[in-house]
Structure formats: structure tokens, C-alpha cells
Design a protein around this nucleic acid. Structure first.
Lengths: 340, 340
DNA sequence: GACTGGCACTCGCTACAGTCGAGTGCCAGG
DNA sequence: CCTGGCACTCGACTGTAGCGAGTGCCAGTC
């Protein structure tokens, strides 16, 4: 059964009103507040059809209608009009990100900015190591048998790991090791690194081999296998807006989900292209988030993607506005990274 | 007016029962569940006195009694009996912290452990830079005019900052700079550093001076002035336990406070000695946390303190248990740090 | 055939009255 | 000084009634 234009207009009106008022919307209110050009009775008929098709539902028999997840989906896909950012918002973004001095700083500012602009929970993934190349590897002797391995990536990320060496290691060896790993690994993507690292161990002179082997295993283990991803989070207090009506009364599952890095990564980390991703309520794979929607996208310098960012909020959210903001912020951050 | 022993026993019983059941406790229930050796009527008289003195209060005229902040304070100071940790808990702590490989890892594990054991919100401050000494400073050329400054502290903390140099800087100069800063600064506490850093700039040969000056300003600015403190947080989902009865119905202010690093630092960062600190409800300086209690202490290798940790929960919390857990975890973490 | 006005119906919300019971304060007596 | 008894308070719960927003359906109109 096709939905004619008016039925779609009705759905759009319902979504917009419900998002604005947070109250089930009835047929009379609808015709009053939108120029639909028909009477409430007609709208009621349309509503009946929309309900039959699963786009809206009635909380109680004698209440107004509320969009379903499916309704929001249709709205996002076909009905929402792009909402350009206000100049004030653009300025806010620029001002906020301008002073950043550091990758850490950029990520922190970004996540707070996103939370503030969307008034929702914001999540920003640090540039993924797998998508970064090595810019430099530094080895710093900490004690006779311990080295600190510091990796600096082209995205500005810096990771360090303590390496427990198999035996005492002279300063000259450290210099050699440093030179070797840098020669071979600088400018390679970490995702392509494993064979190179392996090769390093094989090629190295026999007396350095044990040292290089431990170094290699640490490199592989922390930076590649258990690919060390980082996440920043802000705006959890925004979950409490809208009383407890959103999230069907309990923040518990949401807060629990937000504590799991794995979950957050799944939410915003699985971006391949720079396209926008909107997951509405039930569409979320994570059970705890069935009452929430997630808007996310990738970001990175130019057209490459190095990480994801996004926001999480109630299914009853201002999708056009949120999408516009997330997109704009991602673009600004990308530009910022490109400048380095 | 002095409170005789029985009145104190009554107060203790009220606190314990209320913490356990979360319901106002009446005189009958009290004599039934504790061996007070007197009748409900007598207890009622005692309660009347306790109420007059401000240690307990009645939510409604015909309800049982509930401890006030002042009542909890008296309980904590004079009435609570030490609650030794169960062997299971001790084992949990050990197992949890044993596998830590890294300072980051230690802090992360600690904060999760604390949240899990106390079932409250846990906060752990990274070892404060001001209380750390410099173990090594590394300079890594990123481009002709940019250096990455990496500082490794004796506590295991690693901080990095991008330094924009006034002009191109040859490799030899980098080596010189690195040698100089390490010679002068290694093994000094960062809180005592400023004059040394200043001296460095003055002593250095004229051609290196501009470079050293920028380096020095970055060092001072980021590591000392705006003393770069870090905080880890876990267990926010625990705020939702106990329905919404705790925190007088709104998590909002709590969540907001927890988002501010400054606030968290104030909560757990102001430790001088290793003594336990308990702030109950109103005693908190931060308005948003007037409905919460904070139990915190310092930690560090041996008897020195390098940072703070603690938990935040409802005023209606199990103080003896929480205090015991926080103390035990702080001790374990201190031992762990001492091993490095 | 599509739209509209009218009408009966549903049902959540609020107000109100009545009952129950936990808990208290007070008092007289041991 | 403690205790049993008693009158009292007041929140929690229950049931009833009225209100009103909103619906579905139907007959009538363009």
C-alpha cells in the first residue's frame, strides 16, 4: 500500500510536533498547527492507515499518536528537510576548536562541543591506530631492563607502553633498535605492520634478536591485536533532560552501555566511508540501547577516515538538527587534522 | 546535653537499619531487630531526644525516623565498627590489579574495581605531576619547526605536548636541548621546577636560547601552571540503584558535577596525608553534591602520596564497608606503584 | 470517490471520600 | 527511669465519579 503525499505530510507533522512537545499529538492539534488543508476527520483516517502500517501508534486508546521507530526511520529517510546550521552555531564550532593545542585537546573540545550543541551525549573516537601511520617510534630507557616505547602517529596520537626486556640492555643497543624500527616502520599503516615487524625480528643481528623479539611482541600485541582504541565521552547529564519519559523510565541500561568501551566503539567506530549513520531505537544491535538513537559519522583529514564521532539521545530527537550538527563538527575536526 | 550510651546505640541501630532497608525505621522494628533490652516506648523517648539534637528526623509526622547528615557524621566518627574485608574481596582486589601492565592500565583497573566493590561511582586521580619527579624528557622532531615533548615521570605517568618552535631547528640542536633539559630536570619534583627551568634558559648558549625559551614556556605552562591532572571515572550506572530515592529524585546535578574535572579534583585531589576523608551530604562544598557523600583518601608508594581516589554515593551508604574498601584499594595500588 | 461534520464511545487523569495501619507523643503506674 | 496503654496523626491505598481529549464510524455533501 502506497502512502500518498498527504499521509506523508501527516507523518512528518506528527514527528515534528511530537519532538517539539513531547506529547502525543491528536488530529485537531495537527490541523491547527500545520497547513494541511483538510479537516481533523480526514487526518484521522490518514492516521488510521499510518498506524496500520506501523509508522505511528497510540500509547492509550484515547490518546494522540506517537511515532514508532519505523516512523522515525521513514521520516529520516524521506521526510526531513535539511536544517542548515545557524551562523551562531558555526561560530561556536570555530571558536571552540580554534584554540586546540594538542590531539588530546582537540578530542576533548570536540566531544564537549558536540554535547553542548546537540544537548545529548557525545562520543568521539580518537583517531584509530589501525588507520594511522607511524610517524616516529621512540625508545626511552627506564631502567637497565626496561624501555618505554613511545609511538607517535601521523594523526597526532601518542601511545606509550612499558617494555620489560629479557635482559639488561646497553645504551648502544637501544640506539640500534630505535634506528631499526624507525627505518622499517615509519610511514607504514599499523594495520599493515605485522609482517614488517616479523621481518624485523628475522633480519636483525643475532645479539639484538631477543630484545627485538620482545619489542616486536609488545608492538603487535598492544597496537595491533588488541587495537588500542580510545574514546571520549561527554554530556551524560543530558540524559536526564525530558524527565524520565525518554528511555522508558530507566537510565540504568544506557549508563551501563556507555561505560563499556567496546559498546561505544561499536556505536561510532565502525565507519568505512564518511557517510552519516542513523540508528533508531530497535535498529541498535545493543540491547541496552533499544530505547535510544545514535547519529554517527566518520571524520578525518580530507576524505580519509581516521575515526568516528556521534551522539546518542532519545529516539524522540531532533534528527535533522542533530544530523546537521554532527556532520558539521566532523567536517571541522577533519579540517583541523588536515592542517597538521 | 550528653547522649548516653543507649541513645548512641539507638542512633547506630537506626543508621544500620536505614542503610539496609532504605525505609524509615520505627521504634518497634528497632527493638525487634536489635538487642536493646528496652521497650519501644523507651526507644521513642530516646528518639525524641535524638531528633531534638538534630541527628535524626521524620519524613512525615507518622513515619519512622531517618538519619540526618549530622547523624551520619556522628555515626562515622564514633559509632561505626570497622568492617574487615572478606577474603573474597581481598582476592578480588589482588586478582584485578595483578595483571596491570601500565600506569594507564593500573588506573583503569583500579577505578573499575572500586566501582564494582562498593557499587558506587568511583574516581581515581592519576598520579599528580606536581607530586612526581621527572624521570626522563624526550624530544622528538615532528617537522622542521615542531617538536614533540614527551615527559616520563617516576610514577609512570607519560605526558606529551606539541611544541611549535620559533624557527627551523636542526637535529644537533635537538640533541643538545634534550641533553640539557635532562641534565637539569631529571629527578626534580615538578612543583619545584619553575626556577630551574628559568635558569636553563638563562644559562644556555645564545643560539639555542629562543628554542629553549619556547620549550621552557611549554613546560611551565602545561605541566606546572595549569597542572595537568587526569581523572578516571567508573560506575556511574550505580547512581541509578536505589530507584530515585537517593539523590532526592534527580541525577542531573550529580551527573553534571561528575563531568567537571575541576570538581572531581576538588573531591579527591586535595589530600595531604594518607588519612581517610569522609564528606557527608551538606558538608560537600560543591552545591550539586549536597545529596551525596564522598569517601576518599590519598594513595602512593610507601607513605608518600601521589594522588587521590575515592567513591561517591548516596548519603545513605554503608560507610564502614565503603571506608574499608577504599582504604584497602588505596593500599594495594600504593604497593603496586612501589614495585616500579 | 474523497472529504467533512456529527456523534457515540473509550479511557486516562484528577479530585474526593473513606479505610487502614504504622508510628508517634504523652501519661499514669510500677 | 522504664513500661504499657491510649488517643492521635497522616501517608498509602482503594473506589467512585466527572471531565475531556481523542478516536472510529457513519451518513451526508461536493
Amino acid at each position: 500500500m502506497g502512502l500518498d503525499d498527504r499521509k506523508l505530510a501527516v507523518l512528518r507533522a506528527i514527528v515534528e510536533d511530537y519532538v517539539a512537545t513531547q506529547e502525543p499529538v491528536g488530529s485537531r492539534a495537527l490541523v491547527e498547527r500545520h497547513q494541511l488543508g483538510v479537516s481533523p476527520a480526514t487526518v484521522r483516517n490518514d492516521m488510521a492507515v499510518l498506524e496500520e502500517e506501523g509508522y505511528i501508534r497510540q500509547p492509550h486508546t484515547s490518546a494522540g499518536r506517537v511515532p514508532t521507530d519505523r516512523g522515525y526511520r521513514l521520516f529520516v529517510d524521506r521526510l526531513s528537510r535539511v536544517k542548515p546550521l545557524s551562523p551562531a552555531e558555526r561560530r561556536a564550532i570555530e571558536r571552540f576548536l580554534l584554540g586546540a593545542v594538542d590531539l588530546d585537546d582537540v578530542v576533548h573540545r570536540t566531544v564537549r562541543l558536540l554535547a553542548q550543541l546537540t544537548r545529548q551525549v557525545a562520543v568521539v573516537q580518537y583517531p584509530s591506530l589501525a588507520r594511522s601511520s607511524v610517524r616516529h617510534l621512540e625508545l626511552v630507557p627506564i631502567s637497565t631492563t626496561r624501555l618505554m616505547l613511545v609511538m607517535i602517529a601521523d594523526t597526532g596520537r601518542v601511545e606509550q607502553r612499558l617494555v620489560e626486556m629479557p635482559g639488561p640492555i646497553p645504551a648502544d643497543d637501544v640506539t640500534d633498535l630505535r634506528r631499526l624500527v624507525n627505518e622499517k616502520l615509519v610511514d607504514t599503516r599499523l594495520s599493515e605492520t605485522p609482517p614488517l615487524v616479523q621481518a624485523l625480528v628475522d633480519e636483525v643481528s643475532p645479539d639484538l634478536r631477543p630484545a627485538m623479539a620482545t619489542l616486536a611482541s609488545v608492538l603487535l600485541e598492544t597496537l595491533v591485536e588488541r587495537h588500542e582504541e580510545r574514546i571520549a565521552l561527554a554530556g551524560t547529564a543530558n540524559l536526564t533532560r525530558g524527565g524520565l519519559l525518554d528511555f522508558q523510565g530507566s537510565l540504568r541500561p544506557i549508563l551501563e552501555a556507555l561505560e563499556e568501551e567496546v559498546v561505544l566503539l561499536k556505536l561510532i567506530g565502525e565507519v568505512e566511508e564518511s557517510s552519516m549513520r542513523v540508528r533508531i531505537g530497535d535498529e541498535n544491535e545493543i540491547d541496552n540501547l533499544r530505547a535510544a538513537s545514535v547519529v554517527s559519522t566518520g571524520y578525518g583529514p580530507g576524505s580519509t577516515i581516521v575515526g568516528g564521532l556521534g551522539v546518542l539521545g532519545p529516539t524522540r530527537m531532533d534528527y535533522p538538527g542533530t544530523i546537521a550538527t554532527v556532520r558539521a563538527v566532523a567536517r571541522y575536526v577533519g579540517d583541523l587534522l588536515a592542517q597538521n
